[in-house]
Design a protein around this nucleic acid. Structure first.
Length: 112
RNA sequence: AAAGUAAGUCGGGCAACCGCCGGUGCGGCGUGGGGACGCUGCACGGGAGGAAAGUCCGAGCUCCACAGGGCAGGGUGCCGGAUAACGUCCGGCGGGAGCGAUCCUAGGGAAAGUGCCACAGAAAUGCAGACCGCCGAUGGCGGCCGGCAUCCGCCGGCCGCACAGGCAAGGGUGCAACGGUGCGGUAAGAGCGCACCAGCAGCCUGGAGACAGGCUGGCUAGGUAAACCCCACCCGGAGCAAGACCAGGUAGGAGUGCAUAUGUGGUGGCCCGCCACGCACUCGGGUAGGUCGCUUGAGCCGGCUGGCAACAGUCGGCCUAGAUAGAUGGUUGCCACUCCAUAUCGUGCGAGGCCGUGGUUCCGCUUGUUGGAACAGGCCGUUUGCAGCACGCGGAGGACAGAACUCGGCUUACAGACUUGCUUUCUCU
RNA sequence: UGGGGAGUAGCCAAGCGGUAAGGCAACGGACUUUGACUCCGUCAUGCGUAGGUUCGAGUCCUACCUCCCCAG
């Protein structure tokens, strides 16, 4: 995941949470809101309640790998995404997270 | 061989593809007079731990007076050493556990003072106290006998009472009752006397010291300081969001109050001292970007020397992560490791393998619906050898855990693998 | 990074080093035709965990676990 696809600023996070829309599965919640750029950005929010630092870092890496896989299809959608991990996602594998994320993006009409 | 004990090492490996971070080199585009800066591409080599964790101690570093005086507060607490320092480490002493190797140990002071010691008990610290009990020597009362005396009475002996009184041995209470055991002693007793033991004080010897050993003395002093306290030693405060620089900016404005030092701030609980100076509140306005600090350090590895050791010295070699919504990853394959299945098949080894309190003997302890060893016994197999073992073919598993200024420790978590020393028991030669 | 606090029955909680108060809930009983109200009784195997000091620990000390709050 390149640096231009990362959502970093706290203001952007707040805007996505407050003005954006959301869909969810048992493991993940996806928030999104349109931005003024030419491509997408993605950020992750993983609470301390999910697990220790090792668990949280692993989830972020897995989610970044998922966006690396899905990136080419979203290159021309100017939207900010925020993925929130729910409590059951601590032991999820890469393939489980990838299929969940596909499902959410399809429900939000960004993918077919 | 089994059981145990101490110290230490490791914490899966290789490959392919797709990615991330920072470094070096070579390019492309844009801005700019240029040094440069921003975006971007390729190549090369680097990229988590033994605990990176908890943040419990100690330091470096930075700023506040290069950290000053006093009070308050906190910490440490047998002795000696190591160290930059420590509450850490090493060696020893005392005490405790274990057959032993070895392990554990906040271990100064209770004859400086104060507090507390519930319930029970007579009494809980005043060299106190007398419930049951022991005694009745001494004094008292009563009785009997004897002597003296004319009488009042006096003297002596014996017996009784338990009134005065003596006692703390025995019982009982309690975690603890003012040393313990024995002999003597006594009316009964008591360190009252003596012997030994424990404890205390003084002296001598050994040791660097904690302490150990011995002699002498007077006979006795409860526990608690992780209760206050006393003694000795140590500690100034904050923390990399420290701090420095760049851009921007606290500008400028309006109102109110206090004030020229007994004020406000730096400064932390307080006072002194030092330094700087108008300050506080309200309205209105504005910000939370970048660079450095940032990894060469009490550094790591190996050899030698000194030391019992912690460690120190010296020589040679090495450079080994620096992110900032926070890099060190994802997918797949193969190989090792552990466990489970091995029905069927292949290769090799191969004469034994498995069960065994539902019997006998012995051993151990948690002493009982208990565990282990040997034997009896049972099942399978043994010339054409698939009973069993190893490999191949199948499946599952791989812990604890993620650097955030850097070190030295401590504590806690941890699948599994390996090495070495030592102890006890058994067997064989 | 620094600082502060809490953990006691299912819930809310009090508790000088000396028998773990009290309320709600639950359960049993009485009252009632039945229920509610009321009354009586029962309920901690040890006070987050593990060690230690003490004759004795919820309380004191040490280490650890979990949760909450505050400042920048």
């Amino acid at each position: 995941m390149k640096a231009r696809h990362r959502l970093k600023d706290n203001r952007d996070f707040r805007r996505v949470f407050q003005r954006g829309k959301s869909v969810a599965t048992g493991r993940l919640v996806l928030y999104w809101h349109e931005n003024r750029l030419t491509t997408f950005r993605a950020g992750f929010s993983i609470s301390k309640k999910i697990g220790k630092a090792v668990v949280r870092n692993r989830l972020k890496r897995l989610l970044r790998a998922c966006f690396l896989e899905l990136g080419p299809k979203l290159e021309n959608t100017p939207v900010d995404f925020v993925v929130v991990c729910r409590q059951g996602s601590a032991d999820a594998s890469y393939h489980e997270l990838l299929s969940d994320l596909r499902k959410l993006l399809r429900r939000a009409k960004f993918m077919v």
